[in-house]
Design a protein around this nucleic acid. Structure first.
Lengths: 222, 222
DNA sequence: TAGTGGTCTAGACCACCGG
DNA sequence: CGGTGGTCTAGACCACTAT
């Protein structure tokens, strides 16, 4: 039922920008309950195909977008899923004031003292991903009690610091000598970077720049 | 109501791997309808926080993932939204048999004749993105009638060929001399690439490799 | 096969926001 | 303010799958 409604909307009956009848009318036309229409519309809305506003009605999105979902697993799981042995190596851990760009990524106007952690994830003993992380000591002071040579900050945070907002960006960067060394890559190799910043409410938790090894790909789901 | 249920599940009552009571019991405990629980659970499930299986019940996901949504707009819109003037330039258009890797990306075992289109998107007259596209002539033969020097294949497809499946991948690549020339970038610059392949049912529509200019970022939502 | 989640209905009331 | 979508209920039946 919902699927046939999806199909009906999408089979060329309506075009970009068109206004659809209100749920009640559609329900009557199709001989189904309004809740069913509502459910179908919600799906279409989630997929970015349609836009709905109270009183404004439902419109086919005028500028179609390709909307897709990315799952970023815990790095350990990602490595293990490839059938490799996971390894972790703490490189450096310092309590230091955030540089301006880092403060900015949190939306903070003034630098703060945070914990900076540089670490390497290994797959079968070989470098897999380098992470350069900043953790807010105001929001997550307990991290100072964690032995980060063995426990990995990524996982500790996931288990102990739920977040309410998360910004992610992907981009490419040329390997600096530092990255190339750490990752066992050629200098000037092209590397994919994932930057992730999380907050609980409006309080910063952590920001991490994950630099991957050459060839790394991010895949999306349907 | 749904929100309080969300909160209750997430406030530390259950841990990774835990099994939750069945919807009916939760509904009774909270004094709400089962449909309400179902709705809340569906949200949690969509967010990747919980996994549900008929008869198997609902479990908190044992391996937490960061799940996020990426919107990929029409390139024209993306450029215009930045306040730039959009430009488009067809570089080459050939009817040719797919190389093995291209056929493979569609899941085809044998090469087929397709339309290959190389084109450049411009922002304020400057190169913005290069696209190397293959379009199936079996699924979208009408594209041969389109004047691709003026109409851009991206938009024609979006408007005329709805798809049911879409695979996307992001990765970094070192600029070849060809890319560097086209994009006005330095040779060996790191470039972000988006590859997108779409099908209608199990019939291939198009696959496109979009090579971006240096500094390009993909942002995600919530 | 029995237990669980998934879909649907018919109806009520609420919340937002455009005219 | 009135029209539209959003949420909720109480109940029925279905579809999958773990045991």
């Amino acid at each position: 039922m919902r699927d046939t409604l999806h199909a009906m909307i999408l089979d060329g009956t309506y075009y970009a920008g068109d206004k659809l009848p209100k749920d009640e009318d559609i329900a009557e036309t199709l001989g189904c309950a309004r809740a069913t229409v509502q459910r179908a519309m919600r799906d279409l809305s989630d997929s970015g195909i349609v836009e709905r506003r109270r009183k404004g009605g439902t419109h086919v999105r005028p500028d179609p977008v390709t909307r897709t979902t990315v799952d970023i697993p815990i790095t350990r799981k990602e490595i293990e899923q490839k059938g490799c042995v996971y390894g972790y190596q703490l490189i450096k851990q310092t309590k230091i004031e955030t540089p301006i760009p880092v403060a900015a990524s949190f939306g903070l106007s003034a630098p703060t003292e945070m914990l900076r952690i540089e670490a390497l994830h290994l797959a079968d003993q070989r470098p897999y991903m380098f992470e350069d992380r900043w953790v807010s000591l105001q929001t997550a002071p307990e991290i100072l009690d964690v032995d980060l040579t063995h426990e990995n900050a990524n996982e500790w945070l996931v288990r102990n610091k739920p977040y309410t907002r998360c910004d992610i960006r992907f981009y490419a960067t040329k390997a600096t000598e530092y990255y190339a060394d750490l990752l066992g890559a050629d200098k000037a190799e092209a590397l994919l970077v994932m930057e992730r910043t999380t907050w609980i409410g409006d309080k910063p938790i952590t920001t991490v720049k994950a630099v991957t090894t050459p060839g790394y790909q991010v895949l999306t789901q349907s």
